[in-house]
Amino acid sequence: MHLFLFLLFGGICAGGAVNLLIQRKTINSALSLIVVMGSLALIYLLLGAEFVAVVQVIIYAGAIMVLYIFVIMLLNAGEEEQAKGSNVAKIFGIPGLFAGGIIGIWVLLQHRPAEQGVKIGALYGPADQVGWMLFNKYLLAFEVTSILVLIAIMGAVVLARRGNN
């Protein structure tokens, strides 16, 4: 059952990620990113990360992606032009990526200390426990994020405002 669910949602997720790369229209890429995020939320549920799954849907798939789609429509970003092949990134980046991917798979397969596999929800992370940690052990980090949000607000105001003063 677990394997079936993982393959189902993992497949949708991977398919969405590949589709993001294939699509030529920006809006289609954005929509497939939402598919990725939604199926990831279900995968989080499989791992028992209840709170994270909910936040993933509300913040990521909801708020952030809505912002993206809004900007895409606002700027009327239509089809993307054909990429030119003169990029250094393509010469070194793609082979590097393949090499990195092979190393990564090897490393991840190496790293399985006496693995028995996990049941659905092997670690249960409900909102109250996560919240308790957030306001105790991670209190300072939580407070500091407010500075980050302030900066982001100011940045959006400064950069996107029209005209001088």
Binding site: C13, A17, L21, V36, L47, A89, L97, L108, H111
Partner: peptide, 23 residues
Amino acid sequence: MIPISYYLLLSAFLFACGVTGFL
């Protein structure tokens, strides 16, 4: 019952897709 490595491989795949897209 599936090993955690499956999840890690999926995550590595997503990361690699992101890098490819960026390039």
